[in-house]
């Protein structure tokens, strides 16, 4: 019995190793993958092809919507830019619609959500209801493991998240496999990934200028309600992707006042039976 269990475990381990790891691609994307895993980076991008409007579908499946910053309704179908800064247990995620941004900030075990409004050369920060108060909520570490990391909107989370190693992506999400790499006539080079799932077929091309990631393009195909094959595209222009976290973003803006709802009692009282 024991030997059989051991063999089973070894076989499982061997099988795990045989699974197509995207790290099998020796490539320029590895440097970026490592930054993401180390949680030490600044990423700044512009999404020049936002997706068409889908009503309510993204709130139905939590796996695709957890932690995502939804598009404000009056900015639907507009291009946007964004930024993600990570340093260990701190994480700043911003999505910016023409100067008006939505920000989520995590500091250790607390999270905050607030807005930024660009005024001339600086940014004015406000709480979500327009005032000066920002609520501190408890950070749930299990949710990232269960649902995956959020990089802002669903689209950007998917395209950046596809770069993560398979061990950092929860089971159940589409599996992106390395397809190939090459050079283009304009001096850029690329690496391709592809996933096929019940959600459809998607290919992602990561463009490099030398070793610098400059652009991410995605082509996806699925069926609409009438059963017709529809193609979508998304192009992210990567303005910055470096291993230097922008520390100024990882601090809560000074003018915001924190209302703390993050603490649970966790058994400090003597409860005995009952509570």
């Amino acid at each position: 019995m024991r030997i059989k269990k051991w063999i089973a475990a070894a076989a499982l381990g061997a099988l795990a190793l045989c699974l197509p790891f995207d790290t099998a691609s020796a490539g320029k994307l590895d440097a970026y993958r490592n930054m993401l895993v180390a949680h030490n980076y600044t990423i700044s991008y512009e999404n020049i092809t936002p997706p068409e409007r889908i009503h309510n579908r993204d709130v139905v499946d939590m796996t695709y919507s957890f932690g995502r910053i939804p598009t404000p309704q009056n900015y639907a179908q507009k291009s946007y830019s964004g930024m993600i800064v990570a340093q260990g247990e701190k994480r700043y995620v911003e999505v910016n619609y023409g100067g008006e941004s939505r920000i989520s900030l995590r500091q250790a075990d607390k999270t905050f959500s607030f807005k930024g409004i660009a005024k001339k050369d600086k940014v004015e920060y406000k709480g979500m209801n327009g005032g000066k108060e920002v609520t501190a909520l408890k950070f749930h570490p299990e949710n990232e493991l269960l649902y995956g990391e959020s990089f802002g909107t669903s689209e950007v989370s998917r395209l950046l998240g596809a770069m993560l190693p398979a061990s950092s992506i929860p089971a159940g999400l589409p599996v992106y496999q390395y397809v190939g790499a090459g050079n283009l006539g304009n001096g850029l080079s690329y690496e391709d990934y592809r996933a096929s799932s019940s959600a459809g077929l998607e290919a992602i091309r990561y463009y490099f200028d030398g070793t610098k990631l400059v652009r991410i393009a995605s082509a996806s195909y699925d069926r609409d309600e009438k059963g017709n094959l529809v193609g979508h595209k998304c192009i992210l222009k990567i303005k910055d992707f470096s291993a230097v976290p922008d520390a100024s973003k990882l601090a809560l803006p000074e003018n915001l006042k924190v209302v703390d709802h993050s603490q649970q009692d966790k058994g400090k009282k003597k409860h005995g039976f009952g509570f």
Partner: peptide, 13 residues
């Protein structure tokens, strides 16, 4: 188990 795409376990509840 909280499973990941590599066939392993990222954590447990």
């Amino acid at each position: 188990d909280i499973r990941n795409q590599a066939g392993g376990v990222s954590g447990q509840l």
